[in-house]
Design a protein around this nucleic acid. Structure first.
Length: 127
DNA sequence: ATGGTGACTCGCG
DNA sequence: GCGCGAGCCACCA
């Protein structure tokens, strides 16, 4: 079974399933992992990603963190130095229309989510 | 073990 | 639509 120590990995693996041109929210990821109230922990997990140079199993280069926004369809890290600009920029390159305020239309870009069989792989640790 | 910290969310005013 | 307060969780000192 999954343990709390695998939570980060589970978040990363779900995030890696988000297709180019689509986005999802922290809350939806938490729900998919069966922890609807662990929304803050999801954001915490993504913020813990290190660069590719770190050599870590999951890095900001292998995990499409930019495809995760808040439930309002808006980029959450607006007040950080350059990350906000980068996230909006990357998303636009992937085909997502993001306005100057970091907002996008979830009706157009929201990811459907994982199917049960895929979730089972991740929760079992085989994903 | 205890307390502080977020890339969150929801409900109000 | 926006700001605020409170609830919730995994991590790290």
């Amino acid at each position: 079974m999954s343990t709390s120590s695998n939570f980060y990995v589970q978040v990363y693996q779900v995030t890696q399933r988000i297709p180019v041109g689509k986005v999802t929210s922290y809350g939806r990821i938490a729900q998919m992992l069966g922890r609807p109230h662990a929304v803050r922990a999801v954001g915490y997990a993504l913020s813990a990603l290190k660069d590719a140079e770190s050599g870590a199993a999951y890095t900001s280069a292998t995990v499409p963190w930019q495809r995760v926004v808040n439930s309002q369809g808006r980029i959450s890290i607006v007040n950080r130095e350059h990350t906000a600009v980068d996230q909006a920029h990357i998303l636009r390159e992937e085909g997502v229309a993001v306005d100057e305020n970091g907002r996008m239309d979830l009706n157009s870009y929201l990811w459907e989510g994982l199917h049960l069989v895929e979730l089972d792989d991740i929760l079992r640790g085989d994903g």
